[in-house]
Structures are given as structure tokens and as C-alpha cells.
Design a protein around this nucleic acid. Structure first.
Length: 422
RNA sequence: GGAGGGUUGGCAGAGCGGACGAAUGCACCGGUCUUGAAAACCGGCGUGCCCUCACGGGCACCGGGGGUUCGAAUCCCUCACCCUCCGCCA
């Protein structure tokens, strides 16, 4: 949720910012009208209630013989209040509905453009040489040959886009998670294993509802949603709280499975485990004061790069254009790793500054001495998404015989220097 | 799954139809006193929204939602959560 006050306080600036995200003048005019209507409805209702409250309170002070007349008098005021209440509720609902669909204001430095227009800011590592490998195999070939993955049975039991990780595949997941958690921990993120089924308010508050409903798995009988990322329960932890400046920054590292319906992705990335309905992820999440979010964003990206570099992977950092931002994000950076199996860079991490957008929806405020409390800023970024990093890892470090050289930083976690030997 | 008891301000805890946004205590902030501190005393001390340049004023909030009433923290319904007991269970 953006601050509705911006429409009246800084109309030109706000209009220009929203225009970059495709929110046109007509939509904006509608919002302004709703905002005005909401305020006058509130003012009218408050005035009528003040009148009725005064009349009701007077009854208690009247002598008994005068009460009946006084009650009739007060009762007469009630109809007006009820009518104005209905009017206020209606404008309020329309206001809320319209404003919750407005995306966050883009960061001034975020580039224009749509999906694919991202700007490569820097490269991480170097293109793998794949010495002695004549034809690079993809992760499916590598992992299946060593019985580290079972896609066919995943499909049998759960359907398309589900997979079993077995043997070294399972061990690799555990090692990767612990490797990432240790780096996050060293950088001040408290590890958290959160609930992965959440109620509607947490989904709404993080901005996944109402706009991304088709991407969410929901339970049939319990009004719970499966999270698509632990960002949801991590952000939800502090909803409805007023945080003291001394408590910030709050830094977490969520460790959880993630569930995504991938609706609309039919036919895309159908091979292997690049795009699956369930994957494991370590997620960085920070809550900071509003003046600190740009610096925190850089800090998170730096941590992501440290994790990827430590695995000796080649990747590039992309500044995501405004047209490709999720509704909550003001700015986003992705890391795309080189995947020799498809000779392409593919997204392995993402890092967003959601400024006050989630915080306003979740009512997470910063205590301001001698002033009004303000929403905090929240940021999230992938520390390590197991399946995707696994693809980059086995494909980039594959050897001529189909085995995989384990990067030195991972060896202590995995207990072996070579994987997938047969 | 069954039975019962709860949910009030940062915490503890009173209030159970009318002067209650809410007693009291603790915590916290400011002041008096003191060489300083403690104690004592005095004052302040929740959140959001609306109006106002401001001073200030109004409205709402006693777990969430709905209802009864001129008037609800207080009565009714409903949902959530917590506690106790029984059953089941990794």
C-alpha cells in the first residue's frame, strides 16, 4: 500500500512515479476522487456521531421523569448515524480495494523497461571452462545418472513439477542450506524456521494478495495458504507492532520450503527442477528504519554475491526494470547464474527493497519520539534457492565423466570433494 | 475430537449497561527535594483516523467480526488464540 497522502501532498511527483509502472492518469484521478470521498464520509460520520454521543450521554444525567423524552430525541439521531456509517463503509471499501491494487512507487534509480530490459551491473566469477567436457550435460542428465533425482516418480506421486531428491541430491540440499545459513548468520541474520501455512492477513500484508492469488496454493478446509517464500511469515512476525528504533535493524534468515502454483507458466521450463511447485530456500529478510533501506539493499546483495562466489559460480547481477517488478518492490536486483545445460543465464536469486509498502499493509511502525510513528522499511533477498543453485552447481562444475567437483567452501558441509561419481 | 476457564493500556490487574479510553500498582519520562543518588511528593505516559498553518478539536479502538440498546469493556451470536482436563498422536 502506498501512502494515500502522497496523492494530495505530492501529486505531480507521485503521478510521474506511478506512470512508470503503468498506472495512468485515469486511474490516478479515480484514486484521488476515492480519497476525497473517503475523507468527507469520515468527517460527516464523525460529526453525526459526536452529536449522538452528546445526546446519549445527557440521558444519564437527566432525572427519571425526563428520560423518556430524551431517549426519543437521541433515538431520532440514530438513523442519520446508521446511514452515514453505511456510506463511510462503502467508500472505505472502495478506497481500500483500489489502493491495495496500486503497486509500490519505483525507486528513482530503478531502470525503465519491461521483462528482459534488465541492466547487467556486474559479473560474478568467470565462465566455467568445463575442461575435457565435449558436450555439457544438463542437470537432469547429471543428477539422474547418479540417482540423485527422480523426476518420473515425482510426477507419478505428485504431478508435473515435483521431484524427489535422493542420495547425494538430498545430502547436497542439506549441505547447501547449512552453508548459506552460516554465511547469513555471520552477517547478522538470525536463522528462523517459520510456519509455511499462513492466514490471509499475512499474504495480504506482504502484497501477494489480492494480486498474485493464482500463484498460491491454498488449503481446502482451513483458510490457510502455503507460502511461496518465507518472506511472508517473516514479514508477518512483526505485523501490528510498533518497533523502537533501538531494535532495528532486525535481520532474519528464513529456512523453509516454498510452494508456487506456476500458473501461466505452462510449457515453460518443463525439464528438470528449474521451475518446480515445491523447493527449499534460505531467505534473507531485513526490517530497517526508512533512511537505511538503500544501504541495507546493497548489504543484502553483497551477502548474496558472497554465497554465490563461495560456490565458485559464474553469475551476473541484473538491475530489474520497473516493468518487471513485483507489486511490493520499489527496486529489485537478480543474480542470474550461467547454466551450461541450456547455455543461458537464469535467475537464481532476487533481492527487493519494498520500502514502506509491506510495512504499511502490515502496520509495522517505527516509534518516533515527539511525532507520528511511521512505517518501517522491509527488504528481502534469496540467500540460496536450493534447486536453482543445484542446477548451476552441477552444470558448472561437471567433469568429463559426469561427476561434479565440489567447491572448497562446500566440502566441509558435504563431507566429500566429488559428487555424482558412479 | 469432547468438557470447562480465559483474552482489558509496556507489564500486572480492577471494572460486568450511563460521568470508562478505562481504577490501582509496577515500569518509563519530566519536575520538586538532595552535594549527588535513592526514597518521597507533583506532573506526564496507548494506537489509528478526520478537521486545523498552528493552538486545538472530533471520531474509533478493552482479542477479530456481527447483533441488542438512546447508550456496550460490561448483554447476545460468531470466529481466532491461550490455559486446564479427557481422548488420539510424531
Amino acid at each position: 500500500m502506498i501512502d494515500p497522502r502522497l496523492l494530495t501532498d505530492e501529486p505531480e511527483k507521485t503521478a510521474a512515479a506511478l506512470a512508470r509502472r503503468g498506472v495512468g492518469p485515469d486511474v490516478l484521478a479515480g484514486l484521488q476522487e476515492l480519497d476525497g470521498a473517503r475523507r468527507s464520509a469520515i468527517a460527516a460520520l464523525d460529526a453525526a456521531r459526536a452529536e449522538q454521543n452528546a445526546a446519549s450521554k445527557a440521558i444519564g444525567r437527566r432525572p427519571p421523569e425526563e428520560r423518556e423524552a430524551a431517549i426519543a430525541e437521541a433515538a431520532a439521531l440514530k438513523d442519520r448515524v446508521v446511514a452515514l456509517e453505511a456510506a463511510r463503509d462503502a467508500t472505505d471499501a472502495a478506497h481500500h480495494d483500489a489502493f491495495s491494487r496500486i503497486p509500490n512507487l519505483p525507486h528513482p534509480d530503478a531502470p525503465d523497461g519491461v521483462e528482459g530490459d534488465g541492466i547487467v551491473l556486474r559479473e560474478v566469477g568467470t565462465l566455467p571452462t568445463l575442461d575435457g567436457v565435449s558436450e555439457p550435460r544438463d542437470h537432469v542428465a547429471l543428477l539422474e545418472a547418479a540417482d540423485a533425482i527422480d523426476l518420473a516418480r515425482g510426477a507419478k506421486v505428485s504431478g508435473a513439477r515435483f521431484a524427489y531428491l535422493k542420495g547425494e541430491g538430498a545430502l547436497l540440499e542439506l549441505a547447501l542450506i547449512r552453508y548459506a545459513v552460516d554465511i547469513a548468520l555471520a552477517r547478522g541474520h538470525v536463522p528462523v524456521i517459520p510456519p509455511v501455512l499462513v492466514r490471509e492477513p499475512a499474504m495480504y500484508g506482504t502484497g501477494f494478495l489480492p494480486t498474485d492469488e493464482q500463484q498460491l496454493f491454498a488449503t481446502r478446509d482451513d483458510d490457510l495458504y502455503l507460502v511461496g517464500t518465507s518472506e511472508v511469515p517473516l514479514a508477518g512476525m512483526h505485523m501490528d507492532e510498533v518497533l523502537d528504533p533501538s531494535e532495528l535493524p532486525l535481520r532474519y534468515a528464513g529456512i523453509s520450503p516454498c510452494f508456487r502454483r506456476e500458473a501461466g507458466a505452462h510449457g515453460k521450463d518443463t525439464r528438470g527442477i528449474l521451475r518446480v511447485h515445491q523447493f527449499e530456500k534460505v531467505e534473507l529478510f531485513s526490517i530497517v528504519t526508512p533512511d537505511a533501506s538503500d544501504a541495507e539493499h546493497e548489504r543484502l546483495v553483497d551477502t548474496q554475491i558472497a554465497i554465490v562466489s563461495g560456490l565458485e559460480l559464474h553469475a551476473r547481477l541484473v538491475d530489474i526494470p520497473v516493468g518487471d517488478l513485483g507489486s511490493s518492490a520499489a527496486r529489485k536486483f537478480d543474480l542470474e547464474a550461467w547454466m551450461p545445460g541450456q547455455q543461458a543465464f537464469r535467475e537464481i536469486t532476487s533481492c527487493s527493497n519494498t520500502t514502506d509498502y509491506q510495512a504499511r499493509r502490515l502496520r509495522m511502525r517505527l516509534r518516533v519520539e515527539g511525532g507520528d510513528n511511521v512505517p518501517v522499511h522491509t527488504l528481502n533477498g534469496t540467500a540460496l534457492a536450493v534447486q536453482r543453485i543445484m542446477i548451476a552447481l552441477v552444470e558448472q562444475h561437471q567433469r568429463a565423466d559426469g561427476s561434479v567437483a565440489v567447491p572448497a567452501a562446500l566440502v566441509p558441509y558435504l563431507g566429500r570433494e566429488v559428487l555424482l561419481t558412479r
